[in-house]
């Protein structure tokens, strides 16, 4: 179905009703998606768990003290390890739950394009991730009290984490669009994410392919982000992952028409 083609109304057709612009529709759906996290316990649980685990990973090994200087690197490392866990939890229900309960039919039969639904849901989920990340901002603020902190790399690092986390979210959205069960969606996305996460830990076994595997591994990109360096290679990587996953989601959503 060529939803983008605004076909000229055929002769004798009744005038078409009003439809929103792609931007407005996307934002309407994103807003609803985002708000829905906070009208159920899920949003609070995800953020609470995230904060707890970040705190544990940062403070338990006293990493930031051992290094002996004020650095956010342990924090960013901790967050980057948690993203493959927390993002699937955020994304798991985006499509799975809606197709299970049937609300997806209600949504898709509104005058919206599939792409708007997918992008809206992705942005809504990424929005929750953004809130979760923002809550950890307390750490750099505390650390900055203990010594000089260069804010440039901190902000760059957060931006990178948001982008990388969004890539995991897009993976979760894609997986969610293939199942009606959000728990399945969670575990599948977690496993796939974890495999990619581990890719650069295995270069010894693959020898020559190591650099390719490294590039495919999100953790490899997070390492440079944790140092506060967000370069174009990282951005391109994460944006590519997001694009591929959302396009795959579109395929999955489109296939319902033909099956």
């Amino acid at each position: 179905m060529s939803e983008t083609a605004e076909a000229v109304a055929p002769a004798g057709a009744i005038p078409r009703g009003s439809t929103g612009t792609p931007f407005n529709n996307t934002m309407t759906i994103a807003k609803r998606e985002f708000a829905s996290y906070f009208s159920s316990p899920l949003g609070y649980i995800v953020i609470g768990m995230f904060l707890l685990l970040v705190g544990f990973l940062v403070f338990y090994p006293f990493a930031f003290l051992v290094i002996g200087k004020t650095s956010v690197q342990p924090l960013f490392n901790a967050i980057s390890w948690l993203l493959p866990l927390i993002s699937p939890a955020i994304a798991m229900r985006t499509f799975a739950e809606e197709s299970r309960t049937g609300t997806l039919e209600m949504l898709i039969t509104q005058p919206v394009r599939d792409g708007e639904v997918i992008l809206g849901k992705f942005l809504g989920a990424a929005g929750l991730l953004g809130v979760a990340l923002a809550t950890t901002f307390i750490y750099p603020m505390v650390i900055s009290k203990m010594g000089e902190l260069d804010w440039g790399p901190v902000l760059g690092g957060y931006l990178g984490l948001l982008l990388g986390g969004a890539a995991y979210v897009s993976l979760g959205v894609m997986v969610s669009s293939h199942t009606k069960d959000q728990i399945t969606a969670f575990f599948l996305a977690f496993i796939v994410g974890a495999v990619f996460f581990l890719l650069d830990k295995a270069p010894i076994m693959f020898g020559g392919a190591a650099s390719v595997l490294e590039y495919l591994c999100p953790d490899y990109h997070f390492k440079s982000i944790a140092r506060g360096v967000l370069d174009l290679r990282n951005v391109i990587y994460f944006v590519s992952v997001i694009s591929v996953c959302l396009l795959a989601t579109a395929r999955s959503l489109g296939s319902r028409r033909w099956n």
Binding site: E3, A11, G17, T19
Partner: peptide, 13 residues
């Protein structure tokens, strides 16, 4: 008068 295949958006509207 709007075709479900060619112009689903108009149909839904």
């Amino acid at each position: 008068g709007h075709d479900v295949f060619n112009d689903p958006l108009a149909v839904r509207s």
